[in-house]
Design a protein around this nucleic acid. Sequence first.
DNA 1: AAGGCAGGAGTTACA
DNA 2: CTCCTGCCTT
Length: 683
Amino acid sequence: MVDLSYLETLNAEQREAVFHSGSPLLILAGAGSGKTRVITTKIAYLVDALGIPARSILAVTFTNKAAREMYERALQLSPRTEGVMIKTFHSFGVWLLRLYGERLGLARDFAIYDDEDARALLSSILDGSQRRHLSRYAWAISRAKDYALGPEDDLSSILEDDDFPELYARYEDRLRDTGNVDFGDLILLPLRLLKEHEDVRRKVHAAFRVVMVDEYQDSNVAQFFLLRELYGPETYLCVVGDEDQSIYRFRGAEVRNILDFPDAFEGTHIVRLETNYRSTETILRAASGVIAHNEGRLGKTLRPIRQGGDVIRILSFPSAEEEAAYWARFLREEGWEDVAVLYRAHYQSRLLELALAREGVPYRVVGSLRFYEREEVKDLLAFLRLVLNPRDEVSFLRVINKPPRGIGAKSQKAIISHARGTGSTLVEVLREGVVPGKAGASMVEFARFLDHIGERLSRMDLASWMEDLLKESGLWDYYQGFDDYTARQKLENLQELLALARSYPGGRDGLLAFLEYVALEGSLDRGSGDGVVLITMHNTKGLEFSKVIITGLEEGVFPSWAASSPEDIEEERRLFYVALTRAKDGLFLSWAQTRNIRGRRSFQQASRFLREIPPECLSPSYEEEEEEDFPVGSRIYHDDYGYGMVVERRHNGNLLVVKVRFETGYTCEFLPSYTPLERIRHE
DNA sequence: AAGGCAGGAGTTACA
DNA sequence: CTCCTGCCTT
């Protein structure tokens, strides 16, 4: 008999979500409501109780980490779930394209260009004046693909620019010439495949009777279209998400996907998971109070399991330096176990790192520069891709003159245009040495090197072969020439890449598998070692900590200066909501009155979001600051400026600001909590 | 072709 | 302030 005891731990709403079958299901899962448990239990239940074969269940996530975690947890519940296909949207796309990509004229061993590669490709087709807008165009192409818009579609909603449609078209042509794909294609090409090839669609529909999507609020339009194609007449569809935690609009996520899900899929049943197991009542009330200011919601009311809880503290500091120093001291004294310090942007981590180092508090910064985005890693990978695909222009340009071997911009242009003109591969052109003199000789030599190393690929294991390549290409010596610290870092990173390659076999197949692994999940999750976690609010999605400290709660920092439209502000507010709901036991918020921004001392105002927290959640001690009051008209004395009168009184966040006109005629604003102002009560 | 210097720009992030 | 790009010099 099958053991279904895992169902007993579920609450009523979770059961409803697990037992539901038939029509499409939308699970609105509030923060900390046991979402992953529901999905994994549902998978186990489908297999154990309904007898659905594990391999005919497809579950789609947005990160590899989430996919792995889901697979493992499902397996823990029931060993029969082994073989369930849990993939990211992108790795599912790759899987499908490797199987049927030939129908679209795609080679079986295509490589995947990341954002930087795509940018390099785009750069090669822009003229001088257009190159100034490289970032803008690269961004626009990426967004256009998120919205499933091709060069021939109306692109005015993406970028109002007369050149853009043509540039986009040329980019697509060049990309097809290289035989490779970018990340957007990993959604768009499978979409096209399913749309245009009836037989493929039928096979896929037959293969997956159940399709589930996690974090559905993060999906973009192209992914929605893909999901619609995956949804066949017999498919059971179940998506899980939380519109209040949609924080990736800037990368194409479309909240409307989840808001309009019931309209897009007829007969949708909605289940709300509103019981929160994570945070104290106080924290939850604060978060709910904040998110209630948003309009575009389906609406949920989170109910805490944990009543009461510590009040939330808001602290203000004269400077960002003092803010950092305070939290460093705080962590040293109170401990840093299961504590995270959150901020809006990476640049804010620097001051914190400095202060923590000074106090001797161990810390780790989460996800600033990702492993596979590092120069040396990308260089070696470019070599690998070039060996695999001698038409790969992007990889070619990256390594042709690295280290410098006398083949400069002019020769590079000549090689590319010759290859394009004759239809030869780039390596074939190199072999012919189409340029006279030194550069030509150097090209022939480089081609010979590529041939030699290529021949050895099938005779060695991958890691040793890569090591040879590294040494013989001159890359290894090249990095050794950097300053000590940088050189050590770079060589260490390369060693790490080699270590990663050791688990792969040699030959083209091994190389292809390795490259695919690196492209799709090359982000090494380095050390979950101890120490306080420094992390952007975006990166905390899905995590939880006992205590959460949110810093830099200032206008211009958070909400960001770049957030202008009401939609932007709502998105920032959702981000704040995500940040607040990470905390299990304690929540600490802080802001600084001055901060260096772009090398300039900037005077900051408290974030509007602080005012949106219901006052009853806040520490009363905070309001004490207002006790020493300075009503308009009161007389004051300042050590430097002398006697004066308060002419204006307002609040910046929860902090009192007074404007004083002195007897000298000079007018100045002060923050009485930080500036020693003496009130003169009797003349 | 390659290295040095001046000028401009500068969120958040997944595959 | 820092990083990157582009232009200028050698």
